[in-house]
């Protein structure tokens, strides 16, 4: 790095032009400041008893934020952030948030939606949704920086719960979050179909723009910045020859703190279909804002995970011919 600095020669004249550019931008900013002040005065002059007060106020505040954004984005610190969007930035500032949001929209959000649709997460667990927050996972046994949605992970890695980070990009998306880990691929031989199982539920996790880590106590009562583990993490243990198990982590925004957490545990344990899950979410007034997904399959570590966590023995499936398949209501016409 120091070698590059030593041999580097700037284009002459860049410093003067930069100084003059900053002066010009400052002049524009001071002019816009007057306009922003006028807008602010208009907001203060609004009648709070008006039916559309909240909507109008929000709209005008949005205009103010946009004006400020257009000025601030010319500043060198934000230009730097645009060039290196992976660097940490003060998310409490609107401009930094917008830049990060833009960067997320351009790749990661699209990637997530592609994976959710390709793997049929969206019809199989929850109906379609629009991601508003960036959910990122890190497994303690895995060294990757960003886990790509849909990755196939070994059972040993997924034996322990992941570290979840939820990054909201809007002030409205701050608040209490619930996390539900859903597995729609539990083999059900009686019905020749698959059942849904809930592997992990966290509730009342406080998330803000700057505090994005999902924390919960392993033992004891949760503190102020921790949520509650309603259903303890059950490691996914796929069956041999039963294909992939998709583990979908949904992040829900809660309207209010959840009441009656003790009963919820049994309710979630009894969930066997996506419909039941959807009904529960509706009842608890949960709004899905973020998601993630990974996949598991039977590998050489699955049995040791079963042993370690006292889970029942796995089944071994074999492929059978369609002619030999027992007739059920489902396949009677095939």
């Amino acid at each position: 790095m120091s070698t590059f600095r030593r041999i580097y020669n700037s284009v002459p004249g860049i410093a003067d032009a930069y100084g003059a550019a900053q002066a010009v931008l400052k002049k524009i900013e001071s002019r816009n400041a007057a306009r922003i002040q006028r807008l602010q005065q208009k907001i203060d002059a609004l009648d709070p008893n008006d039916a559309q007060y909240e909507a109008r106020k929000r709209q005008m505040q949005y205009h103010i934020m946009q004006s400020k954004f257009r000025d601030e984005i010319n500043k060198p610190e934000f230009q730097e952030l645009i060039l290196n969007p992976h660097k940490p930035a003060p998310m409490s500032e609107y401009t930094a948030r917008e830049i990060k949001k833009q960067h997320w929209h351009e790749k990661q959000q699209m990637l997530l939606m592609q994976r959710l649709e390709q793997l049929h997460i969206i019809p199989d667990t929850l109906p379609t949704f629009r991601p508003k927050v960036d959910v990122s996972l890190r497994f303690p046994g895995l060294r990757t920086r960003v886990l790509e949605p849909g990755t196939i992970l070994p059972s040993s890695v997924t034996a322990r719960p992941p570290v979840v980070n939820i990054q909201p990009f809007d002030e409205h998306d701050e608040g209490l979050y619930s996390i539900i880990l859903v597995n729609p691929d539990i083999a059900d031989t009686e019905n020749d179909s698959f059942r849904t199982k809930v592997h992990w539920v966290l509730a009342d996790v406080p998330i803000s723009l700057t505090n994005t880590r999902v924390k919960y106590p392993i033992m004891g009562a949760p503190t102020e910045d921790e949520g509650t583990e309603v259903l303890q993490y059950i490691p996914p243990t796929p069956e041999l020859n039963a294909g992939f198990e998709r583990l979908c982590l949904w992040a829900f925004w809660q309207r209010k703190p959840i009441v009656g957490i003790e009963d919820l545990k049994t309710q979630f344990q009894n969930v066997t279909s996506a419909r039941q899950l959807r009904d529960m979410c509706k009842r608890l007034q949960l709004r899905p804002l973020g998601a993630h997904v990974w996949r598991n399959r039977y590998d050489r570590t699955t049995d040791s995970v079963r042993e370690q966590y006292g889970l029942p023995e796995g089944r071994v499936f074999t492929p059978i011919r369609i002619s030999e398949r027992p007739a059920t209501k489902r396949n009677q016409f095939n």
Partner: peptide, 20 residues
Amino acid sequence: LKYSPEDLVKHNVIHRAWMF
């Protein structure tokens, strides 16, 4: 021509200011 990160930021700021 390979700009240093600081110079690249300066160049972008100059360009934006000029456009404005």
